[in-house]
Every structure is written in C-alpha cells, then in structure tokens.
Simulated assay, not measured.
Amino acid sequence: MRLMKFCCCLPLRVGVIITGCLFGTMDLVLGSIGFYMVIKNDFPQPVHKFFDKMDTRTCVACFSSVFYLMSMNDGMLIYGAVRRKAGYMGPWLIVNFLVLICTIVTALLSPVAIIRIALLIYSMLVVSSFFDELTEY
C-alpha cells in the first residue's frame, strides 16, 4: 500500500519531516526521563516490576541510551527528507520495524502501547511511501 498524501492534505515530504520531529522529540524526552531516574536512583514500582530479576538501574540506562540513538536516527530521517536522500530513510524504516515488533510484544502489558503501534504503523507507511517516491526515478 502506498500513500499519496500525509493526513489527506499535506505532501509526503512534510509528513516525513513531521514524523521525524515527533518521534525524535518523543525519544529524546523518554531517554532524558530514563537518565533522570538513573541519576536519582529512584524508579517507580512498575519499572522495578518490569525488570524483576535484573538490575533496574542498568536496564533503564540501556533503554535510555537506545532512545537517544533512536533520536539520532530520527534526525537522519529529517535530513533525508529535507535533502531528498532515500539512503537516510532506510535505516529509520529498519529500526522502527524492530521497534514495532517489540512494541507488539509489550502491548499485552500496556494498553498505551496500542496507540504507539497505530502511530508507528501509519508513520512507517508515510516514510515508506516517500521512500518509494524518491527511488522510483
């Protein structure tokens, strides 16, 4: 399936830039919250429960680092859309496909994850459509 417009009215290129900004901001905020919890060494009870048998501090630090890496990947997506370079969009699609798989697995634990799944699927469709548009020439 291929989209022609983002949200029925905006060009795909603008939609890809919006997607990169949205996910980049979200990833930076989540990574910062995680590192804040690591520095304060104060974790909510659900986090302790999620990492039951593992060291919570190490796991949260690793997840926060992954969020920061994903925000850099979102920056590459924005750069690729602005410069119309499809090579910068491929890594975003691969990484977020893996994130989608992991989110589907954890959707059983959190109903909020279902919203992220829907948003991620639509965003991947937008980026994939723009990627196809760039590589058709």
Rank of each mutant, 00 (worst) to 15 (best):
L10D: 04
F23G: 01
S71F: 07
I39H: 05
C9E: 01
N41H: 01
G24L: 05
I117P: 11
L3W: 06
V29S: 09
R13S: 00
C102L: 14
T103F: 09
D52C: 09
G34A: 11
V95A: 14
M89L: 15
A107R: 07
S123M: 02
C102E: 12
S71P: 06
G20W: 05
I104F: 13
S71E: 06
R13G: 00
P91L: 03
E136T: 12
L93P: 01
V29H: 06
L100E: 11
Y79K: 10
M70Q: 07
L3I: 04
L98W: 09
S110R: 08
P46S: 02
T135W: 01
Y122S: 04
Y79H: 09
M89W: 06
G34R: 09
F43C: 00
I104W: 12
V14G: 06
S65V: 13
Y88D: 00
I101R: 06
L10P: 02
F67G: 04
H48C: 05
L10A: 10
C21S: 10
K53L: 13
V105F: 12
G80P: 02
L120W: 05
L28Y: 04
K40N: 05
F50H: 15
F35D: 11
S123D: 05
I78R: 07
V66H: 15
E136K: 12
K40P: 03
M76F: 10
S65T: 15
S65F: 15
C21E: 08
R57V: 08
F51P: 13
I121G: 06
F63H: 12
V66N: 12
I33D: 03
I17Y: 11
A61P: 05
S32G: 14
R116K: 06
I121L: 13
K40Y: 02
F23H: 04
M54D: 13
E136H: 10
M26A: 12
L30W: 15
H48E: 05
V66G: 10
W92L: 03
I18E: 01
G75R: 01
F97Q: 02
F50A: 13
I17P: 09
H48Y: 10
I104Y: 14
E133L: 10
Q45C: 00
Y122C: 05
L119S: 13
P46C: 01
N73P: 01
M89F: 05
D74Y: 00
Y79Q: 07
V127N: 03
A86K: 11
F6W: 11
M4D: 14
K5H: 14
R83G: 06
T106C: 10
C7H: 08
S71T: 13
P46M: 03
S128E: 07
V60A: 03
E133N: 07
K5V: 11
P91K: 02
L69N: 03
